[in-house]
Nucleic acid binder design. Structure first.
Length: 586
DNA sequence: GCCGTTTTCGGCCCGACTGTTTTCAGTCG
């Protein structure tokens, strides 16, 4: 089977690490890192596209040389330049770069002076106490390394879900805003870009008294440790394990600083490079011509000075947004207030925690026009999935409840299990009584990619199939999605008038941003749903919308920005050729 | 190693903080 993009990317990251430790040209190192990242974000399989004759040197940052090396990895699984550098630099050294405070220079010193070749040999040398004697090291660095290694052994210290980052930020911001002399406080970084996981939280502030601000920051009740403290920048670790940076800048630099601290790093590099071409210097204090400051108070003027339209934070990943901003081709992104209903929610009938009525009231209170109740079906026994009889009772209950509403309606639905052979676990006779059918996979996750893909596409051939829920089944940080040829699934969905769900549960966010964009480009529409199991979870919609925005989705790309009558029209599938051709499962 | 409205060479984003140093290298974002 073809090598995955992430496996190929890992090879180039490894080369970059080892070259870096060896002391190679910094820009050569960067070229390998850029290549790794570019490969990783490609929506289609790079290995397969090479087989189809694609020329990778058309990708930004990839020239003839790197394109050749990518092909080498994709076709042979090996890379000469990696094997060469591994002869000079032990490959176990790359892991040391993950220890905070350890960069290529220090790793190199450890290798040359103490013959360190891996994490294990570093731990042995640490015990001898000789590290503090090395040039550029000292007792504090030694302690920091020891600390860093211990922390790596603790579980769950890396990235956290967006929901936890959200919770922490929503508590911290009001605290900081209450400090005397504070003018502006905002969360920037990956939080502002709406990333699905958060590594740390970057807060930006302007104020009249930076010392008081920093003082309040390091005294926040949830602080576990203070990592650094300065007049313009301080870093703390909270008891939750999340790291928070606070930067204080002058009010006239607020916009430039917000651009800078929102990132991403790749986006910043791209816009600064534009500045360099125009003879301008861009930093967190503003845009400068020589020593003269041209602007910096707002983000808009910073982008404008560079000849760019203001760019939505969720797009700032250097995935084409800078060129689009230059050419006036930025998409008008979907907004949360454009969502008119939720097409996937549960009740106490199966594994939800609220009644039909409670869920309906919560949805009405949000101003929605409709809420689809999509409880599980019979195969999912752990969730007390409903058989035809119970589903019919629920349909009648919904009819009774709907009679009380005006301007709002509960849609009759079910989250129907896709069985191993691609059939659905309820007969058409009951499916046809529903307003919509949300279909998903809940078992047999480990089928081979070909078989899993056939299973999903065969299910889509059923004319009652409307929405493929949580298309890959991944659980962020816990479970990889099942092997599925998403390109084929998206194409099949577009062809059949079937929609792909973007599940808003913060540990799912399934589809990813990259596949949202891919689906859009392939003409498949997206439904953003919460899969809510309680009234409060209806609020997860904001995570889904954030992910959709990262995927460049516009209002028209998302089904549930429409009224129910419009949605219903979209759901009316053309006489399905699939239903006639449905093959008997083997 | 990449790239071109300074175009085939000579650039490549920029500043803060820490720890180790007596003026700065390394790391980080």
């Amino acid at each position: 089977m073809a090598l995955s993009n992430s496996s190929i990317a890992a090879v180039f990251d490894k080369v970059a690490d080892l070259l870096d430790i060896e002391g190679a040209n910094q820009f050569r190192v960067r070229a390998y890192r850029t290549a790794a990242r570019t490969i990783a974000i490609q929506p289609e399989s790079v290995a397969e596209s090479i087989l189809h004759g694609r020329d990778l040197s058309e990708l930004p940052g990839i020239g003839k040389d790197l394109a050749g090396k990518i092909e080498e990895v994709a076709t042979t699984g090996r890379l000469n330049v990696l094997e060469d550098v591994e002869k000079r630099v032990p490959e176990g050294l790359s892991a040391l770069l993950e220890i905070p405070g350890m960069g290529p220079k220090r790793v190199r010193v450890l290798k040359e002076r103490c013959a360190v070749s891996s994490m294990e040999s570093l731990e042995r040398v640490l015990k001898t106490g000789q590290i503090r004697e090395l040039p550029g090291f000292g007792p504090k660095t030694e302690a920091a390394i020891r600390d860093g290694i211990e922390r790596r052994k603790l579980p769950g210290q890396s990235r956290v879900t967006r929901a936890l980052g959200d919770e922490v930020t929503r508590a911290l911001l009001p605290y900081l805003k209450s400090v005397d002399g504070v003018l502006q406080v905002v969360a920037a970084g990956s939080y502002r870009r709406g990333l699905e996981t958060i590594g740390d939280i970057d807060i930006l502030a302007t104020c009249t008294d930076a010392v008081a601000m920093m003082d309040a920051f390091v005294k926040y009740p949830e602080v576990l440790r203070v990592l650094s403290r300065g007049i313009t920048r301080s870093t703390i670790v909270l008891t939750s394990g999340i790291q928070v940076d606070l930067r204080v800048v002058p009010a006239e630099s607020y916009g430039a600083a917000l651009v800078y601290f929102t990132g991403s790093k790749a986006h910043n590099i791209a816009i600064r490079a534009i500045g360099v071409k125009k003879g301008l210097k861009v930093n967190e204090y503003g845009v400068f011509k020589g020593r003269r400051r041209l602007c910096g108070k707002t983000e808009e003027e910073v982008y404008a000075r560079l000849g760019l339209a203001w760019i939505e934070p969720e797009l700032r990943e250097n995935r084409g947004e800078v060129e689009a901003a230059r050419d006036g081709k930025l998409p008008e992104l979907l907004r949360l207030d454009q969502i008119r209903g939720d097409l996937h929610a549960h009740t106490v009938a199966t594994d939800g925690r609220r009644t039909l009525e409670e869920m309906a009231e919560a949805a009405r209170a949000k101003g929605y026009e409709y809420l689809s109740i999509s409880d599980h079906t019979k195969r999912l026994t752990v969730a007390r999935g409903q058989d035809e009889k119970r589903l019919r009772e629920q349909i009648r209950a919904i009819d009774r409840l709907n009679a009380r509403f005006s301007g709002f309606q509960i849609l009759k639905s079910a989250e129907v299990d896709i069985l191993e052979d691609g059939s659905l676990d309820l007969p058409d006779s009951i499916l046809k009584e529903l307003d919509i059918r949300v279909c998903s996979i809940h078992y047999k996750f480990n089928l081979p990619i070909q078989q899993q893909t056939e299973r999903v596409i065969r299910a889509m051939d059923n004319p009652y199939f409307n929405i493929l829920a949580h298309p890959t089944g991944r659980l962020i940080g816990r479970r990889e999605g099942y092997a599925l040829d998403l390109d084929r699934v998206i194409a099949a969905a577009a062809e059949r008038g079937v929609f792909l769900e973007l599940n808003s549960q913060p540990d799912r966010l399934d589809l990813t941003d990259i596949y949202c964009r891919k689906a859009r480009d392939m003409g498949a529409k997206i439904v953003i749903s919460t899969d809510a199991h309680s009234d409060l979870e209806l609020d997860f919609m904001r995570f889904g919308v954030g992910q959709a925005r990262r995927g460049w989705l516009r209002t028209e790309d998302v089904v549930n920005t429409r009224s129910w009558s419009r949605v219903r029209t979209l759901f009316r599938r053309a006489p399905s050729s699939g239903s006639l051709q449905r093959k008997k499962p083997q």
